[in-house]
Nucleic acid binder design. Structure first.
Length: 824
DNA sequence: TCGGTTCAGAGTATT
DNA sequence: TCTGAACCGA
């Protein structure tokens, strides 16, 4: 055990060995966060303070959960598989499977990923005859997920207008459809689990007493519902150990609520707050940049990274004329790093948005430098894999309409839209699944759909006693998918992927301890016989849960079973096939092969979170790009961008490069960007400019841009149609006022000044005329709260500003009336 | 049912 | 500029 705690610094040691009680660990970038978390678990177990069954650790990604388990099994002679370590969704899934009946679900419910969900919504809208122009499926999806993540069922969503009322109706209809089909979307996993605990006192108390220690990773990324779920799970005797970094909160846009950190501190009366500030990753100059930058944010919990590794090299800054030249410079620099002995995989190129990768890829490709781009299609998202999974889903559950529609005519069987529509009408009329409604069809359509159904039925029978791996292989071979792709020009890769799916099943079975003699459809969860999912007996609505928590229900018994450490099945009663299906939905798989390859790593800054590299290039440091123009108009948007920059900087171990381009091709237009304000926020002393640092930007930009600049001049003296002239504004450095403006100025060579240009220019003009507000500025209003100025119009007594108040909406306010106070 | 054309939109993303 | 989705004609 002393071994366990060796090499921990003082703060880490204190965190790891905290006595029971709630704790918040503010773990800076590179401060050994994961190490503290896993060592804490190992310490708790090895000192006998908690049994492995009485501990729950939750992360956001499967990768993080795996990492935790790997490290744990290296520290302790235990198998962490049976422990409650996993993602929020994974743990909720587990809980719902165990208590499916109490949760009003079939124990083998299937999980919809985002695109399954979107198809389900489109199907719903079509069935309901809803105008999808007026109610775009994507918007409804967003609405539903938002509501669920706020813990709101359709009945609980407040609406004030007809438009949103319709959304609520559709939300309710969507939930009904899911319930009917026995499927559950991601947000539902959490909400259902939350409701289960909330309504079932016995279950809640059981888990509250069971989980003495609850550990949460990346706490700053939790959303409202996840936080409430944790609150529900934590009993009087539980200790919640939350690890996070408010400065690395970069997921507000997908619902993360940093405020959970301070709520946690307050609501749990956290007495132990420990800051991990010693950084083991980066050299001093890099940390100086990170610290100085993040200082510009307000409302931080407060933290300062330090290292004893020395200053290291300066942070290099390079300003190129164009995006193409920026890429060219990167290539040269990467080559030089290679000559200095640095491996390719130790070099990362980071960018704010995916669109920026193309130029970089082009340059790397031309130079013959191996690279790997993160993101893109993941394994289980590939069309051929989705098709195969649909066959598997139908074998497991014939009532899965989504799966039915995906493959009823794939490979093509001559079943057209017409037949499908007939089928859907019948299904709706009699409240049947599509497969069950097929009986109503007549003629050729009946024969064709019948052939499909008997194919699925045959596959189900043939595989009934097969192991999971054999089943998957059988289905891949006999579904007709392989034969279909064999006829396609580029089908070979798809066939290989299908073979890979068989491999995935083999390793999944091995990991889960499914022997090759164990039938995959063990306890065949539902065949046509399972009426509970059909139309006849509707499953209990979630609202009815509270009725009957029978202390000796199946759930309670299963609970005991799952407590037994010897139980090889993490999830009782789930067939290997159903387990594989849920595994595939919860874990989309690797995005690309070739991970072991020695290649330069290209990714967005978001994707880089949690990673580290010897050399990091942060590219495109321009106003409008980074910070992104869309973010500047959002409440707290700029601060989130700054945190993003902070994350980017702290990825680097010894070498950090910052680069920008004066002109960039974006959306088919050449844009002329200003240098990112973030560069101005870094300490001069830590930087080394590789290109002349241009102080009086206007004059030398003019030289550098040549003709392009003249284009601007022609279109209106350089500052837009309204005639505001920077050179006549009288200031000694007129540019300084505009350079802080958000949005890049874009110029259409032939005609006129681009839209973004006009906005910036107008703002500049207003600024020059003494309107004391600028776009991007955060202001406070007595009634609407805080907002961000996104537009300025008019002058003097007529001046109006457009402000985005977030939830309160975007409003135009007359400056002569509204009282605004600057924030910051 | 497929293949070409047209059009809109273009920010970050895990489960 | 480029991509993906929607649409139309053969």
């Amino acid at each position: 055990m002393s071994n366990l705690l060796a090499h921990l610094n003082e703060a880490q040691l204190a965190a790891v060995t905290l006595p029971a009680g709630h704790a918040l660990i503010l773990a800076g970038a590179g401060s050994g966060k994961t190490r503290v978390l896993t060592t804490r678990i190992a310490w708790l177990i090895s000192t006998g303070q908690v049994s492995p069954q009485s501990l729950l650790a939750v992360t956001f990604t499967n990768k993080a959960a795996r990492e935790m388990m790997t490290r744990l099994s290296a520290m302790l002679p235990i198998n962490p598989r049976g422990m409650w370590i996993g993602t929020f969704h994974g743990l909720c899934n587990r809980m719902l499977r165990t208590h499916a009946r109490d949760a009003g679900l079939s124990p083998s419910f299937q999980i919809l990923d985002s695109s399954d969900q979107l198809s389900a919504i489109k199907r719903l809208l079509r069935a309901a005859g809803v105008d999808d122009e007026k109610y775009p499926p994507k918007n409804l999806q967003y609405f539903i997920n938002q509501s669920k993540e706020a813990g709101l069922r359709a009945g609980a969503v407040e609406v004030f207008d007809d438009y949103n009322r319709r959304f609520v109706e559709l939300y309710a209809a969507y939930d009904e459809q899911c319930q009917r089909e026995g499927v559950v979307d991601f947000a539902e996993l959490l909400l259902r689990s939350y409701e289960l605990l909330e309504r079932n006192q016995l279950l809640r108390e059981h888990y509250q007493q069971r989980f003495r220690h609850i550990l949460v990773d990346e706490f700053q990324d939790t959303n409202v519902l996840q936080y409430r779920w944790l609150k529900l799970l934590a009993g009087i005797d539980s200790s919640v150990f939350a690890v996070g970094d408010d400065d690395q909160s970069i997921y507000a846009f997908r619902g993360a609520n940093v405020a959970n950190m301070s709520s946690f501190e307050r609501e749990f009366r956290v007495s132990n707050l420990i800051k991990l500030e010693q950084n083991y990753r980066s050299h001093g100059n890099i940390l100086d940049c990170a610290n100085a930058l993040i200082e510009h944010n307000t409302r931080r919990l407060g933290k300062n990274l330090w290292t004893d590794a020395g200053d290291g090299e300066p942070v290099r800054v390079h300003e190129a004329f164009s995006d193409v030249l920026e890429a060219q410079w990167l290539v040269d620099e990467i080559r030089q790093l290679g000559r200095d002995g640095l491996e390719r995989r130790e070099v990362a190129l980071l960018y704010r948005s995916n669109a920026q990768s193309r130029v970089l890829e082009h340059a790397l490709f031309s130079a013959g430098i191996a690279y790997r781009v993160y993101g893109g299609l993941r394994f289980f998202e590939r069309a051929e894999i989705r098709h195969a999974m649909a066959y598997l889903r139908l074998i497991d559950n014939p009532d899965d309409d989504g799966a039915f529609l995906r493959v009823v005519n794939f490979p093509a069987r001559g079943i057209g839209t017409r037949s499908i529509e007939l089928l859907q009408d019948a299904a709706r009329r009699d409240s049947l699944s599509l497969a069950r409604a097929a009986a109503v069809l007549t003629g050729g359509a009946a024969a064709k759909v019948g052939a499909f159904l008997s194919l699925v039925g045959r596959l189900r029978e043939e595989t009934a006693r097969m192991s999971l791996a054999d089943l998957v292989e059988h289905v891949v071979d006999r579904s007709g998918l392989i034969a279909h792709y064999a006829t396609e020009k580029e089908g070979q890769e798809r066939i290989e992927n299908l073979r890979e799916l068989v491999n995935a099943a083999v390793s999944f079975a091995a990991e889960e301890g499914f022997g090759s003699d164990m039938p995959a459809s063990l306890g065949v969860a539902r065949s046509f016989a399972s009426e509970s999912l059909g139309g006849a007996a509707p499953p209990p609505a979630p609202e009815s849960f509270a009725d009957a928590p029978d202390p000796m229900s199946d759930g309670a018994l299963l609970l005991a079973a799952s407590d037994a450490p010897a139980d090889p099945l993490a999830v009782p009663q789930l067939s290997p096939l159903a387990a594989f299906l849920s595994h595939a939905s919860l874990e989309a798989g690797e995005s690309q092969a070739g991970e072991g390859q020695d290649a330069v790593q290209l990714m967005t800054v978001h994707a880089a979170k949690g990673l580290e590299f010897s050399a990091v290039f942060i590219t495109g440091l321009e106003e409008g790009l980074f910070p992104h123009e869309n973010s500047v108009a959002e409440v707290d948007g700029l601060e989130e961008e700054r945190r993003l920059m902070y994350v980017a900087i702290t990825r680097a171990r010894s070498r950090l490069y910052l680069s920008l381009a004066q002109t960039r091709m974006l959306h088919g237009q050449t844009r002329y960007n200003l240098r990112s304000r973030f560069l101005e926020e870094l300490p001069e002393g830590a930087l080394k400019w590789l290109t002349p640092r241009v102080q009086a930007a206007a004059s030398s930009y003019r030289e550098g841009w040549g003709g392009a600049w003249e284009g601007v001049e022609r279109s209106g003296n350089g500052f837009g149609r309204r005639g505001a002239d920077n050179r006549s504004s009288g200031g000694s450095e007129p540019w300084r006022d505009t350079r802080r403006l958000p949005g890049s100025r874009s110029v259409d060579r032939d005609s006129d000044v681009g839209r973004a240009d006009v906005t910036a220019v107008q703002a500049a003009a207003r600024f020059d005329r003494g309107v004391p507000w600028r776009i991007g500025q955060t202001v406070a209003h007595a009634r609407f709260g805080e907002g961000v100025i996104v537009g300025i119009e008019g002058q003097g007594a007529d001046a109006r500003v457009q402000i985005n108040f977030g939830r309160q909406g975007v409003k135009w306010l007359a400056l002569s009336v509204a009282r605004l106070d600057p924030v910051n």
